[in-house]
């Protein structure tokens, strides 16, 4: 298996920048598996990984794009409960 180290470097940049922005936005630290609120690890890291993979597939990666993706994914998971709330089935 040949591991592409530059790709791991870019993915690491987007994860670390998303976690730093998450700390600055004062997101909760401990994961709570019953709540719909985002915390510092759960949707943030996975949203950053998914968006970085989509950006790599569409445009190719560079450092500025990775930092922008990190900021965007931290904002997305800060307001995840407003964007995708729990469904209430009209009752």
């Amino acid at each position: 298996m040949n591991v592409p180290y530059t790709l791991i470097y870019f993915y690491g940049i987007s994860i670390i920048s998303s976690i730093i922005i998450g700390i600055l936005l004062k997101m909760p630290l401990k994961p709570n598996t019953n709540s719909f609120e985002g915390n510092i690890l759960f949707p943030t890291v996975f949203v950053a990984l998914g968006l970085t993979a989509i950006a790599e597939f569409l445009f190719g990666l560079d450092i500025i794009l990775c930092v922008i993706i990190g900021v965007f994914s931290a904002l997305f998971s800060k307001y995840i409960n407003r964007i995708f709330p729990g469904v209430d089935y009209g009752n």
Partner: peptide, 28 residues
């Protein structure tokens, strides 16, 4: 798509979980 595809799948499954009234930990 290879290994990156799995990461995209995690994002899409997370959105699908939220549409179905689930916090999304298990799927992602």
């Amino acid at each position: 798509m290879g290994f990156e595809g799995g990461l995209i799948a995690a994002l899409l499954i997370f959105i699908g979980n939220r549409l179905c009234n689930d916090p999304g930990y298990a799927g992602t």
